[in-house]
Simulated scan of single mutants.
Amino acid sequence: MSIHPLLSRARGLWEDLAHVPVSFPPAGGVKVAVSPESGLCPAGWVGMVALGESAIVTVPTESTATFVRDALVGLPAQAIVDGTSVRTVLPIARTLGPAALSYVSADGFRPVQTGTRTLEQLPAGHPDLRRLEESAGEEDAGEAGMDEITSPAFVVREHDQVVAAAGYRGWPSLTAHIGVLTAPAQRGQGLARITASAAVVHALATGLLPQWRARPLASRRVAASLGFEELGFQLSIEIV
C-alpha cells in the first residue's frame, strides 16, 4: 500500500531530526533509537513522534533505550504520544506536549482573502514583532516562536500597532515551520487565518512543506481551516 505523500515527507523530516539512522516502521509499530543529540526533544529527554500508524522514539542512552523499549511493548503508536497512557508505563517527571503535527500540500491548501484588512511584510526580528510578543505574553509568544522565523513576517496592523503576525522558520528536509501570533484583544476576528495564509503561500512558492505544530485547540482549528491535515503528534518526556 502506498504512503500518502504528505505523510512520507513528514516522516522524512522527523527521521532527519532524530540525528541517527531510524525509520518509521512501514507496517505500524514503534521504533526506539539511541540519539543523545536528538532534535525530537530537549537534551536528556525522551522524544516521541507518531505519524500515521507508526512512531519513532529517541532516548539519550543505551540503558534508557532498554528500559523504554520494555515499557512500550504492546502500546500502539498513538498511545505513546498520549501523556496519560505513557504515564501508566513510564515514571515521568515532566512532559512537553503532546502537540499535533499538521501538514498541507499546494493542492490541499485553502488560502484566505484579506478582505478589508491590509497585509504588510516585515523583516524577521522587527521591533514591532517584539512588541506584539510582549502584548501576547510569554506563554503564547513561546508557542508561536515568532522570534525564530527565518521568513518575512506577514502582519496586520490596527492603529499603527501590529496585532497579528505569521511567518515560518526553515527546518530540515525543506520544511517551513509555521508560527502565528495574535494580540489577545484582537482574537476571534480571523486574523490568524489571514496572516498564516500569507505565510503558507510564501512557503509553498519556494517549494517548502508547511508544518503546523500546535497544542491549543484554537490553533489546530486555524490549521484545519487552511487545509492542513493532522497526521500525528509529538510528545517529549523527562524520565524520573
Results as ranks from 00 to 15, higher is better:
Asp147Met: 02
Leu129Glu: 10
Ala136Val: 10
Leu132Cys: 08
Pro152Ser: 10
Gly137His: 14
Ser135Asn: 10
Ala124Cys: 10
Asp140Trp: 05
Arg131His: 09
Gly137Ser: 11
Glu134Tyr: 04
Ile149Gln: 12
Glu139Ile: 05
Pro152Glu: 04
Gly125Glu: 08
Glu139Ser: 03
Asp147Arg: 05
Glu133Phe: 04
Pro152His: 12
Ala136Ile: 07
Ser135Phe: 10
Leu122Arg: 12
Glu138Arg: 11
Ala136His: 11
Leu132Phe: 12
Leu122Asp: 00
Gly125Ala: 07
Glu139Asn: 09
Asp147Lys: 13
Arg131Asp: 13
Arg130Trp: 02
Ala153His: 05
His126Ala: 07
Thr150Asp: 09
Glu138Gly: 02
Gly145Thr: 02
Gly145Glu: 03
Asp128Asn: 08
Pro152Ile: 05
Leu122Trp: 01
Met146Leu: 15
Leu122Met: 03
Gly137Leu: 12
Pro123Trp: 02
Pro123Met: 02
Gly125Gln: 14
Pro152Asn: 04
Ala144His: 02
Thr150Asn: 13
Gly125Ile: 14
Ala141Met: 09
Pro152Thr: 12
Leu129Cys: 03
Gly145Ala: 09
His126Phe: 05
Gly125Tyr: 11
Gly145Lys: 08
His126Tyr: 03
Glu134Asp: 14
Glu134Met: 14
Gly137Asp: 03
Arg131Lys: 13
Glu143Ser: 07
Gly142Lys: 15
Thr150Tyr: 03
Asp140Met: 11
Ala141Asp: 08
Leu129Phe: 12
Ala124Ile: 01
Asp147Tyr: 08
Ala153Cys: 12
Leu122Glu: 00
Ser151Gln: 14
Ala144Asp: 12
Pro123Ile: 05
Ala144Thr: 04
Met146Gln: 08
Gly137Ala: 01
Pro127Trp: 14
Arg130Lys: 14
Glu138Ser: 15
Gly137Val: 01
Gly142His: 09
Leu129Lys: 12
Glu143Gly: 02
Ile149Glu: 04
Ala153Thr: 09
Gly137Ile: 13
